[in-house]
C-alpha cells in the first residue's frame, strides 16, 4: 500500500518536476488573481455608478452568464474553438482570458455587494467636501467595501488558486500537469499524492484563516 501511494524513491524522482509545477502554479495565480479582481472592479464600479436599467441589466446578465458557465467549458471553448476562427492562441493566453471572464464575474458580484453595503451618507459626505466621483469611490467607498466583504474576497481567491489546476487541461505545466506527467513516466500514483499534499500545505492556512474570519463575522452578527 505504502509502496504504491507513498513510494519514497518515486517521490524523490518526481520532486523536482513537481517543484517546477508549483512555481508555475504560483506564477499563474499571481497573474490571474489580479486579472479577476480587475474584471470584478470594472463590473462592480460600473454597476453601482450607473443606475440606469440599460447599464444594470446587461451587466447582471453578463455576470450570471459567466457564473453559469463551467470555467473548464469556457477554457476549452477558447482553446479548441479559437483556432478554427483563425486565431492562434497559447494555453496561457486562454487561461488568462477565461479567468478574467469567469472569476471577474464572481469578484464583481462580491464587490458590488460590498459597495452597496457602504451607507450612501459616506458618498454624500465625501462629495460635500469636494471629492470627485472617482476619488470618492477610490478613497472612501472602496476601502470600506473591501473590508466589509473581505471574507468573501478571500474565499473567492482560494477558489481561483484552486482553479489554476484547470491549466493542466490546456497543457500549462502547472502543479497538476507536472504531477500527471511524472505519474505517466513512473506508472505510479505517488506524484499525484505528493501534488495533493503540496496543494494542501499551500492552501490550508488560507482555509483556516477563512474559517476564523467567517466565525468572527457570525459572532459579530449575534
Amino acid at each position: 500500500m505504502l509502496d504504491t501511494f507513498a513510494n519514497a524513491e518515486i517521490a524523490r524522482q518526481a520532486w523536482p518536476i513537481l517543484l517546477a509545477g508549483l512555481g508555475n502554479t504560483l506564477l499563474l495565480s499571481v497573474v490571474v488573481v489580479p486579472l479577476g479582481l480587475l474584471g470584478g472592479l470594472i463590473l462592480s464600479v460600473t454597476a453601482t455608478s450607473f443606475h440606469h436599467p440599460l447599464v444594470r441589466y446587461p451587466l447582471m446578465a453578463w455576470v450570471d452568464f459567466f457564473r453559469a458557465f463551467p470555467p473548464l467549458v469556457l477554457l476549452i471553448l477558447l482553446f479548441a474553438g479559437l483556432p478554427f476562427a483563425g486565431i492562434q492562441i497559447t494555453g496561457f493566453a486562454c487561461v488568462c482570458i477565461a479567468f478574467f471572464l469567469n472569476t471577474g464575474a464572481y469578484y464583481g458580484e462580491i464587490l458590488r455587494a460590498g459597495i452597496e453595503s457602504v451607507p450612501s451618507g459616506q458618498t454624500e459626505a465625501a462629495r460635500s467636501t469636494g471629492l470627485g466621483r472617482l476619488q470618492t469611490m477610490l478613497f472612501v467607498v472602496l476601502p470600506q467595501a473591501v473590508r466589509n466583504v473581505l471574507p468573501d474576497l478571500l474565499s473567492n481567491t482560494l477558489e481561483v488558486v484552486k482553479l489554476t489546476s484547470l491549466g493542466s487541461v490546456v497543457a500549462m505545466p502547472e502543479l497538476l500537469f507536472q504531477a500527471r506527467q511524472a505519474q505517466s513516466l513512473t506508472y505510479n500514483p505517488t506524484p499525484i499524492v505528493l501534488a495533493a499534499a503540496v496543494y494542501f500545505v499551500l492552501l490550508w492556512p488560507l482555509v483556516r484563516l477563512l474559517s476564523r474570519l467567517e466565525n468572527r463575522a457570525l459572532a459579530a452578527r449575534k
Binding site: 484552486k162 489546476s165 497538476l176 499525484i192 495533493a196 496543494y199 490550508w204 488560507l206 482555509v207
Partner: peptide, 8 residues
C-alpha cells in the same frame, strides 16, 4: 476545501 476538485 483546500484541494482543487480536479486534483481530487
Amino acid at each position: 476545501r483546500a484541494l482543487p476538485p480536479l486534483v481530487i
